[in-house]
Amino acid sequence: MPQRETQPILIVEDSEDDFEATIRAFKRANLKNPVHWASSGYEALELLEKMPRPGLILLDLNMPGLDGRKTLEMIKSNDTWRKIPVVILTTSDDERDIEGCYALGANTYVQKPVDLDGLFAAIQRLKEYWFEIAILPLEG
């Protein structure tokens, strides 16, 4: 479905190195969607006001300022954004984080692999699920 390739992806990640690694993984997975990057929760909320509605948000939890938990809460409590799938992509495997994110409306929780090959494999699986299997909501 060509429309899937036009849906932007918003990556909310404070580490430029992690963002660049994710972009490399997207390229290797042949994910052609436009990508927007927010390096903080505040920046993500500002971008959501301006950019076309993303088909998917990848959200890190542990960021300075407005962290991923609060950002997730704000996204899911907003009538315009609540249907956007949010994938938590973080190093935390703390059960409280996992439970808390699902309680706030996260669609998926993925622990970031520690090596690049693991990240490539995880992004490939995310691409297959979110952009080839799942049907994402359209804007509106």
Results as ranks from 00 to 15, higher is better:
Q3S: 14
R4Q: 09
R4T: 05
T6L: 12
I9F: 05
I9M: 04
I9R: 04
I11P: 06
I11S: 10
V12L: 09
V12P: 02
E13M: 04
S15D: 13
D18Q: 08
E20N: 11
F26M: 02
R28K: 12
N30P: 13
N33D: 01
H36Q: 07
A38Y: 07
S39D: 06
S40W: 09
E43D: 10
L45C: 11
E46N: 08
R53S: 10
P54A: 10
P54L: 03
N62H: 13
G65F: 04
G65I: 05
L66C: 10
D67P: 06
E73T: 14
E73W: 09
K76W: 08
K76F: 07
N78W: 14
W81G: 04
R82I: 14
R82C: 14
R82M: 14
K83C: 06
P85F: 04
P85S: 02
V86E: 00
V86L: 01
V87K: 00
V87D: 12
L89A: 06
L89Y: 05
T91H: 06
R96S: 15
R96Q: 11
I98S: 10
E99S: 14
G100N: 14
C101Q: 05
A103M: 15
A106K: 00
T108W: 09
L116E: 05
A121R: 05
A122Q: 01
Q124S: 07
R125M: 11
E128A: 06
E128K: 11
W130C: 02
L136W: 00
L136K: 00
L138E: 08
E139C: 12
G140C: 09
